[in-house]
Design a protein around this nucleic acid. Structure first.
Length: 454
RNA sequence: GAGGAUGUAGCUCAGCUGGUUAGAGCGUCUGAUUGUGGUUCAGAAGGUCGUGGGUUCGAGCCCCAUCUUCCUCCCCA
């Protein structure tokens, strides 16, 4: 049979993995710096943990795992009945009782709900693991992809929003990816909904205005009308999403538009505080109010973030926000949460497109010890000395022409080669050559480490 | 889930209205060159033309199905 992998999944070669790990380790380091602790949860969850948490569309995109043993004679009849309900679009525990995780937030909520007695609140965790979606793959969209989430459970403090924004700034600064942090607040959208026929319209409004960037004002307006809003209501929304310009100007406009709405004022004040503190703590933060930012996921109730890479066509490379009732879905009330997520696969694509990966990260082996056919002992000894100094090196596997050994080093981006032949052994030394400059020198084995730049 | 494009050597791609033995560049390997690479030169290997059916005297090319990748919609990271 011809080897292949499932649609939308990928193998990662060494060159790709080194770059990915560069992103992962940057994010991990910053998460740790802010006091988040690691968590991993299983690839699969019980199916009822996931179903119904991501909306109707989300349910369709969850990968369900077929139960084992369906062919057992004793179960045949019940399996047939259960399968009938699957054919009617319902899930059935008789056919599937597990599913692959769809994101990291719901498993986190499940974990907090399960372990609330043991955890120290506020509970700050980060998690970097793959998630799976049965979506149709496209550029920047995969069926298996990684998320890196940091969330805080059990605190309403706005300090977290401020620090999460600072994490975004720090990580993308470290990666040298130019970004805009888009900021908005669901409370303001709620105030807007109240002015437009009540909260029942909130979802209709958020879904439509979230697309403003993509489809433009006219299409957003027609979508709003299709979703049953009146002309007057659409006019109010148009006024709202047309707000643009400097953050300060948008703030003033929001204050004017929602001067009579308590929730609107509350949301605006949160925005003001976050903007103020973030820019004061790290002036490099490119944080931008975006009134049309809504985010599809309905569990958000306060601040919302989204990260837009500058200079490339790419969907958002990160997002997050505050959700008041994280664990309510699992029967534990009163635990608020706030969190952010990094889309590593898209960050990778952006960095690739902008050529932002440092060349340095492709170096695995630092030195290649040529095989000159001398006693293996001499080669192994030199390798051991280097390895003791934490310099990664390898010995060419067989004696062969230098030409071949040089080419091997070149292919693997190994910066140094070391030659130990009869001449060198007689002088208890080694020849070290820097492949980049072409310079070479004869040194004592013990002095190699000094000549090799890390 | 709906619609559209795509697939030929390890990689990037040619391949005429259907006609003998499917080509190029790059890469790989061998040699010039058994202690000094990146250059050059000579040669070689490498293909069930995504897969399975069909039409035809004859299919890389036409038809059907299926899979992959990519694009639009939906949704998202």
């Amino acid at each position: 049979m011809k080897p292949s992998i499932p649609q939308g999944t990928r193998d990662f070669s060494a060159a790709v993995l080194r770059k990915r790990n560069f992103i992962f380790s940057t994010i991990r380091r910053v998460f740790e710096l802010y006091g988040f602790e690691p968590l991993e949860t299983p690839a699969m969850e019980n199916i009822e943990t996931l179903m119904g948490k991501y909306g109707e569309e989300g349910d369709k995109l969850i990968f369900k795992i077929l139960n084992n043993g369906l062919n057992h004679p004793d179960k045949k009849e019940s399996a047939l009945v259960d399968f009938e309900s699957v054919l009617n679009g319902k899930t059935s525990k008789g056919i599937s009782e597990r599913a692959l995780r769809y994101d990291l937030t719901i498993p986190f909520a499940r974990y907090v709900a399960m372990n609330q007695g043991q955890l120290t609140f506020p509970f700050k965790r980060y998690q970097m693991q793959p998630v799976w979606r049965a979506d149709r793959p496209q550029r920047g969209r995969y069926r298996e992809f990684y998320q890196c989430d940091a969330d805080i459970a059990g605190s309403n403090s706005i300090l977290h929003e401020i620090e999460l924004a600072l994490i975004y700034t720090t990580v993308f600064n470290d990666l040298k990816v130019p970004v805009e942090i888009h900021l908005n607040n669901r409370k303001i959208l709620q105030a807007l909904a109240e002015q437009c026929g009540g909260e029942s319209n909130l979802t209709n409004i958020t879904i439509a205005i979230d697309k403003l960037d993509k489809i433009g004002l006219e299409k957003v307006k027609s979508e709003l009308l299709e979703r049953g809003l009146t002309n007057d209501q659409v006019r109010i929304i148009e006024q709202y999403i047309s707000l643009e310009g400097e953050n300060q100007k948008i703030i003033e406009d929001l204050q004017r538009l929602f001067s009579k709405s308590n929730i609107g004022i509350e949301g605006t004040n949160e925005l003001i505080e976050i903007l103020h503190e973030v820019q004061k703590s790290n002036p490099a933060s490119n944080i931008k109010l975006n009134p049309s930012l809504a985010r599809g996921l309905n569990y958000y109730t306060g601040t919302i973030f989204e990260i837009k890479a500058l200079g490339v066509e790419m969907g958002s490379i990160g997002g997050g926000g505050r959700y008041d009732d994280l664990t309510g879905l699992f029967g534990v009330k009163g635990i608020a949460g706030v969190g952010i997520s990094f889309g590593v696969d898209r960050i990778y694509d952006v960095m690739e497109e902008l050529s932002l990966f440092p060349e340095k990260i492709q170096e695995g082996t630092v030195a290649l010890i040529f095989n000159t056919g001398v006693e293996k002992y001499h080669l192994l000894h030199a390798a051991a000395v280097l390895r003791n100094e934490n310099i990664s090196c390898e010995i060419f596997h067989e004696q062969s022409k230098f030409d071949k050994q040089f080419k091997y080093a070149e292919k693997k981006s190994i910066p140094y080669i070391i030659i130990i032949g009869e001449d060198e052994i007689s002088k208890n030394s080694a020849t070290l050559k820097d492949l980049k400059t072409g310079n070479q020198q004869v040194l004592k084995i013990e002095d190699l480490k000094k000549a090799i730049k890390p």
